[in-house]
Nucleic acid binder design. Structure first.
Lengths: 311, 311
DNA sequence: ATTAGATATATAAAAAAGGTATGGTGCTAT
DNA sequence: ATAGCACCATACCTTTTTTATATATCTAAT
């Protein structure tokens, strides 16, 4: 049983005549008779009652006709859906993000989802290490991270914006109450809850350097594994921290707030990271195309697979 | 898009290698490559990532694979169901019956339904005329009727049994109270509600002839269009009637009863009637086969299409 | 009776699929 | 480093399948 036979069969059933069907198919009549006969042989079933004035479906033929029509519809739908996957209108997009960037990532994913509602999203929260691992193994397609990602080769990145690094504190721990900004000297002796020293995000190094230059060693009372932990420590009154300003926005209703450190122009850069692998699925291409055209100001993506189609 | 192309595509997807798939298909490798390329060209989509150690499905390929598998399953199911229709395990059986035979017909239909539960039944009640019309037009497949059906050519019949014709009465109208049977003389003057004179069933003629031979003209107060109407007239006290004995069984809870007429050995024969048309659908063949083998004692069916398969 | 319209069969031409040979590419093992 | 291996793609030829042409048969209608 092959498609041609079913195709001819359906045509004959609709034309109620072999010769008429042949004319509509733009082929001669004998081939149609033959293919019909082959189909009937294979099924071991008579599909048409032949009489002089055309042919008529048997009951078995009626069933085959109904099912064949449905099958051809499904076939067309199948081809379309495959093309949709290729075009990035359908499929799966697997996204990783760090705690610091949940809000920004969500906003952007929402925008993407509104444009490509048929794409199934898969999201994962984790540390940069874990996320980069999954990226390189193909388990994730794109990551919302901070800072430079070129630690691993073969990665591409796109800067989405910038986020000033500021002092995070609760009112009781404010080193300069009432002031708009905190002078670096005011930090001497102030207990700090910074990110761990192998700081993957690179948040703390600027502050630590500034303190050294100001002539004192900062009082780091706690090294935190990740951003939300640091926030918790600040909120619990252990000390101040030094984090991207936007993070406070993700904790509404909390008494903590941020202030810049005077003269310290440190910044964190939210970036999008993806594999430099030349093959990217349609969904990823679309996503990156959207990201690089409409989000952030910075560099255009240089991954070969990210600028193919934009409609 | 070709049947063969999809077949090869699925094989390659499962073997994760073109050459391995070719070996499993017992053909050389280049044809498989070629068919794949044709399929990809037609869809305008790359389905596999080729690398040295075999191939890997792209996302579009994954979708096509999943859907193709489903489609092949449906194709097999389709072929099976078509064969089922031919075998009479599936399809439609359209049955007509007269009022007199509802009970017998139902019992037999139930038996048939238990053996062939997937067959959809269509049933119609009507006068013999109407039913025979529908039969000849192909709207019905088989009829449960009474008496001889050979009024129209090209019909086949099978006698299902016999049913004595007896006097039907309510107690107030019993012409021979207390007796087991009614002598023919006792009917002189007794009001009768017989079936109409163009009696399609042939029920009344025997009684009318017997009365004539006994030397009196029966007192027919009402001609009834059909059997249930005659029953209603009897029940309402208009008079007695002359009907198949089994009919009373179909009216449980009614005070009416039957008695034979002494010396009048009249009978009615429930028969199955069908078209002599050589083509009969599988369901009809099965039904007739069951009917002629297991129901009634009489003649075997002589329709060419009724004895093909019996398993 | 003859004609028109339908389906089936037979044979020749065309198209499609399969087979063989060959070349490129990236691992792997020597 | 290099030879060998496994894999896929391409070119070319052979075989099979499919189509077209011509012919035959049947039935209803003119």
């Amino acid at each position: 049983m092959n498609f041609r036979q079913l195709e001819y069969f359906v045509a004959v059933a609709e034309a109620r005549s072999i010769s008429r069907a042949a004319r509509e198919l733009h082929i001669a009549q004998p081939p149609v008779s033959r293919q019909l006969a082959l189909l009937e042989d294979e099924l071991g079933v008579c599909l048409f009652l032949r009489h002089n004035k055309g042919v008529e479906l048997t009951e078995a033929g009626q069933r085959l006709y109904a099912q064949s029509r449905r099958m051809f519809q499904e076939l067309r739908a199948m081809a379309d859906s495959v093309r949709d996957v290729e075009a990035g209108l359908r499929g799966q997009l697997r996204v990783g993000m760090v705690y610091s960037d949940i809000q920004a990532a969500m906003d952007r994913l929402k925008e993407y989802h509104e444009r490509f509602p048929q794409v199934e999203l898969y999201v994962r929260l984790g540390s940069p290490d874990d996320l980069l691992d999954d990226l390189s193994r193909g388990k994730l397609h794109v990551l919302f991270l901070r800072g430079q990602s070129e630690r691993a080769y073969g990665l591409r990145e796109h800067v989405l914006g910038e986020d000033p690094l500021e002092l995070v504190m609760c009112p009781e721990r404010d080193p300069a109450p009432g002031a708009e900004a905190v002078p670096i000297q005011a930090l001497e002796g102030v207990p700090m809850c910074l990110l761990r020293s192998d700081d993957l995000w690179g948040y703390s190094s600027d502050l630590l350097g500034a303190c050294q230059r100001a002539g004192f060693t900062p009082n780091v009372v706690c090294q935190c594994y990740d951003t939300p932990m640091a926030m918790q420590m600040v909120q619990a009154g252990f000390g101040v921290s030094f984090l991207p300003r936007s993070i406070v926005a993700a904790h509404p209703g909390s008494p903590i707030y941020t202030k810049p450190v005077l003269g310290l122009d440190a910044k964190s850069y939210p970036i999008l990271v993806w594999s430099g692998d030349p093959y990217q699925s349609g969904c990823v291409k679309r996503f990156l195309s959207l990201a690089c055209q409409e989000w952030g100001g910075g560099s255009a993506p240089d991954g070969r697979g990210s600028e193919e189609d934009s409609g």
